[in-house]
Amino acid sequence: MSDDRRDLSHELPRTPVSEATVAARRGKLTVATISLCGCWGCNLSTLDLDERLLPLLDLVTITRSSFTDLKRIAGRCDVGLVEGGVANEENIETLRHFREHCDVLVSVGACALWGGIPSLRNSIGLDECLATAYLDSPTAVPGDRPTIPLHPEIPRLTDRVRPCHEVVHMDYFLPGCPPSNDAVFAVLDAVAHGRPIDLPTSLTHYD
């Protein structure tokens, strides 16, 4: 990576948070979410909490979320929710940053737990996948030299898509594709009230 990059989302100028907001947040639990290699469906399950989100926000502050696409956490965070598996160098970097800055890190959804749909490429091999996508693609521009994209600003793909817990230690696992809004609520509610996360079988499903 070059040193002169200036336009990463967490480096952009931001409006300072007012003292009133800082005071209101004091004592609340901080939660951060991130989407790695996934489809964002698990975040939609969080949005599906609908009106249940509002009382939760009296106890929890979401310091950064996939909705803002900020990749870095400012300061310490109590809980990190990670959606998606690890499929490129940027995913590894972001996941390690989350591990360093979060007390409790939760794998959310099939991709984070075992690679999910993106891991279908694992049994095929990266070379063959890239060749099919770029070299032998039926939609390639006729006459153009077939090229696999390679640029310092494009994260390099890992040879295999990996579960998060094969890269860093994960504390809890929430299966599902996506986990239901009830399952996401159960996790956030347990965390907000200081209970251990222990999902009933009725909320555990892999599809």
């Binding site: 690679g115 891991s119 579960p163 696992f173 929430l174 079988t201 499903h205 892999y206």
Partner: peptide, 15 residues
């Protein structure tokens, strides 16, 4: 698997 409480395999996935 869900009844045994398996959330994700404890072993490395082989694909």
């Amino acid at each position: 698997a869900a009844e045994t409480g398996m959330l994700t395999s404890e072993f490395p996935y082989r694909y």
